[in-house]
């Protein structure tokens, strides 16, 4: 529905000229597609459905609607109109906004303050059903023309997420890439009312906790901060997650102080601490240059306070590399 909104707001003129011809009806195919999509993703925010990259989605979203406006309506159709859809959408967003405001009155994220302050652990992502998988996106180097494949589904016991696929480090034959081979799983950015980007506040915790089962491959955990400038969209904080392999579950605890700062995949000379009150998303990347199948099972991802961990930041800056910091 947000797509509809976006489309209408961007192209106001066709709407005006089409309004006189009574009911703005969508063809059945589109309606079916739309309905099924919204059925698939009841939890996810509308309009941000399964596509991996936003620009593509925009293109794909626009094209069928341009066609639809010219197509005359056929006989039997469900009662769907643009106006009603927009009204429902706005109502929905207003309702969510109201919930947010009321929740804020109660305490952070709708929980009373005395509970939040006493909390030492918190489960942020868990995998107990299909709807939990909708909070994640998987990508591989297919986006740049590589051959890796990655899939995400519920595990055998239907209680954990299974990320599996094949890594291939064969570079794409586009004439400029010389290396390739990555698979990644990234959490979606939480959206509030009116599609505002929300962020997590983990400032009272100091460690990340993962309960995983892998096959011995090293992964990288990437945490993104919410940034306001487009220049910092490639910046993230990373650390390694080594899996033991084998049939046993493994508990991985990574203190947030260990995360190092990188931009476009290159470690920056000037290192800064991860700002825990503006966490936008988390991701797992596999790029160990070993071709073959892989899997990673994730039970849940949480944050907790480790009272024994007092380190602020693990990496000191070097006066050789960035003398300006030492002036």
């Amino acid at each position: 529905m947000a797509l509809v909104c976006r489309f209408l707001s961007s192209t106001n003129a066709p709407r005006k000229c089409l309004k006189p011809c009574a009911a703005l009806r969508l063809p059945p195919g589109l309606v079916a597609a739309y309905c099924s999509r919204s059925l698939q993703k009841p939890g996810a925010s509308p309009g941000r459905a399964s596509q991996q990259s936003r620009p593509e989605e925009g293109l794909q979203g626009h094209e069928p609607k341009e066609v639809t406006l010219d197509v005359p309506s056929s006989e039997e159709q469900p009662e769907v109109s643009f106006d009603k859809a927009i009204r429902d959408e706005v109502k929905d967003h207003l309702r969510r906004l109201k919930d947010e405001v009321l929740n804020h009155w109660v305490g952070p994220e709708g929980r009373p303050l005395h509970k939040v302050l006493l909390e030492q652990t918190r489960v942020v992502w868990q995998f107990r059903g299909k709807e939990d998988l909708d909070k994640w996106v998987v990508t591989s180097d297919k986006t740049i023309g590589g051959r890796s494949e990655v899939f995400l589904k519920m595990g055998k016991n239907n209680q954990s997420a299974l990320l599996y696929g094949t890594l291939s480090s064969e570079p794409p034959k586009d004439g400029e890439s010389s290396q390739s081979g990555f698979c990644a799983m990234i959490s979606r950015v939480v959206r509030g009312a009116f599609e505002r980007r929300m962020c997590y506040d983990w400032s009272q915790y100091n460690s990340l906790y993962l309960r995983v089962r892998g096959d011995g491959r090293p992964w990288m955990v990437n945490i993104r901060e919410q940034k306001d400038f487009i220049q910092s969209k490639d910046q993230m904080y990373s650390y390694f997650m080594y899996t033991r392999g084998g049939p046993y579950w493994q508990e991985v605890k990574i203190p947030f102080s260990k995360f190092f700062f990188s931009n476009k995949g290159r470690i920056r000379d000037a290192q800064y601490k991860l700002m825990l009150d503006k966490i936008s998303s988390i991701g797992f990347t596999l790029a160990d240059k070993v071709d073959g199948p892989f899997f990673l099972e994730i039970d849940f991802i949480g944050v907790f306070t480790d009272p024994a961990h007092t380190e602020e930041f693990a990496y000191e800056n070097s006066p050789v590399l960035n003398p300006r910091l030492f002036r």
Binding site: R122, G155, F300, G302
Partner: peptide
Amino acid sequence: DDYEFDIDEV
């Protein structure tokens, strides 16, 4: 003082 995660582990 509760350091347990509020979740049923697999």
